[in-house]
Structure formats: structure tokens, C-alpha cells
């Protein structure tokens, strides 16, 4: 396997990576809280910004810490389908809800 020095190096790299991920998440989270309390004109805009911030955090955790990005394509395909079905579930439910004629 790896010789000792390269594995030590990769461990150091992991520590650096972990630290930067944590810092970014912390910053994004604080921004998110800030935006949520900011006097924005539109509540929809605020929700959208907050969700975008959450999305950034999620991508960091999934992409870096869960190393989805480096993963094999079996897992990629699986996740893609899952997300698709989740979107279908929520999207179609909401569409059905919105399309229902009101009495």
C-alpha cells in the first residue's frame, strides 16, 4: 500500500481540508442566519437565499466529506435516481395541491 510518508502527507491534507470545510460551513451558516433576519422586501426571496445557503453547505458535506465526487458511478446513478424521485414526490404533490380547484 502507501508508504508511510505519503500516508502521513495525505492525513495532513485531510486535516487541512477538514478545517477549511468547517470554516466555510460556519461562514455560510452565519450568512444564512443573517439573511434570514435581514429586512428583505420579499419573503420568497429570503427563503430562496436561505435555501441556497443550505444547498452550499449540503454540497460541501456531500461532495467533500462524503466524497461523493470521487465515488464510482454505481453510486452516482443511485443518488441521481433517488433525487429524481424525491423531486417527483414533492413536485407532483405540490402541483396536485396547487391545481386543485378551490370551492
Amino acid at each position: 500500500m502507501n508508504d508511510t510518508s505519503s500516508s502521513v502527507n495525505s492525513y495532513r491534507a485531510a486535516v487541512c481540508q477538514g478545517r477549511s470545510v468547517l470554516l466555510i460551513i460556519a461562514a455560510v451558516t452565519l450568512c444564512m442566519v443573517g439573511v434570514a433576519h435581514a429586512p428583505l422586501p420579499d419573503a420568497g426571496l429570503r427563503t430562496a437565499l436561505v435555501l441556497v445557503a443550505a444547498g452550499v453547505n449540503a454540497i460541501l458535506v456531500a461532495g467533500r466529506l462524503m466524497h461523493v465526487l470521487q465515488e464510482r458511478h454505481v453510486i452516482f446513478v443511485l443518488l441521481a435516481f433517488t433525487v429524481l424521485f424525491f423531486v417527483a414526490l414533492m413536485g407532483l404533490c405540490l402541483w396536485a395541491h396547487g391545481d386543485t380547484p378551490k370551492p
Binding site: F81, F85, A88, L92, W95, A96, G98, D99, T100, P101
Partner: peptide, 24 residues
């Protein structure tokens, strides 16, 4: 299998659903 995830509301036609979603 894929399609079977997006047909479910055919069990709910008579719940007063709208025409567009029912068409889908």
C-alpha cells in the same frame, strides 16, 4: 419501474383534483 413512481395519483382521480394534474 421508473415510470411506476409517477403514476400514483390515478388512484385519486375522484378526490377533486384539477384537470391539468389529472391529465398528467
Amino acid at each position: 419501474s421508473f415510470l411506476s413512481f409517477i403514476v400514483w395519483a390515478h388512484h385519486m382521480y375522484l378526490t377533486g383534483m384539477g384537470t391539468r394534474i389529472s391529465t398528467f
